[in-house]
């Protein structure tokens, strides 16, 4: 099935989630992916001209109908609580405010990416992006 409207995620596991990957923040500072903190994302978004951090609360997590390797995560996004569903690999990591990397299957994330990860749960507030000029 096509991705749900409003959700733009890579179909597979991108290389930058592998432990040790070098990430450049908006101010030019370089950090390893496993060392990123909530403040790094917030400060980078503040510097950015067109991107804004939104809070996306996990409302539901269920197995995908298409493959056991995938999960469907439903988020409530931003102040208008827009409902957005994404279908992701169960090991796909999301960054939870004040907590760090979390996925539907943290054991697989740690195994495949070596990225320290906790279990993504309903009620977790993830960092997501929107365009600043969107009302």
């Amino acid at each position: 099935p096509p991705p749900p409207p409003g959700a733009v995620l890579p179909p597979s596991l991108p290389p930058y989630f592998v432990k040790g990957s070098i990430i450049q923040l908006a101010d030019g500072e370089l950090k390893r992916v496993e060392d990123l903190k909530t403040e790094d994302f917030i400060q980078s978004a503040e510097i950015s001209n067109d991107l804004k951090i939104d809070s996306s609360t996990v409302e539901r997590i269920e197995g995908s109908h298409t493959s056991p390797n995938f999960a469907v995560v439903q988020f409530s996004v931003g102040e208008h609580r827009a409902q957005v569903s994404v279908e992701v690999l169960v090991e796909y990591p999301f960054f939870v405010f004040g907590q760090g990397w979390s996925s539907c299957c943290p054991d697989r994330t740690t195994q495949i990416l070596e990225l320290p990860c906790t279990k993504l749960s309903v009620g977790d507030v993830c960092i997501s992006l929107t365009l600043k000029n969107l009302k």
């Binding site: 733009v8 995620l9 070098i22 450049q24 996004v77 827009a82 997501s128």
Partner: peptide, 19 residues
């Protein structure tokens, strides 16, 4: 060594404005 921009790590969840 590849360097990735910070925003590539964050899902882009843009709520659709259907109205």
């Amino acid at each position: 060594v590849p360097v990735f921009p910070w925003h590539s790590l964050v899902p882009f969840l843009a709520p659709t404005q259907s109205d």
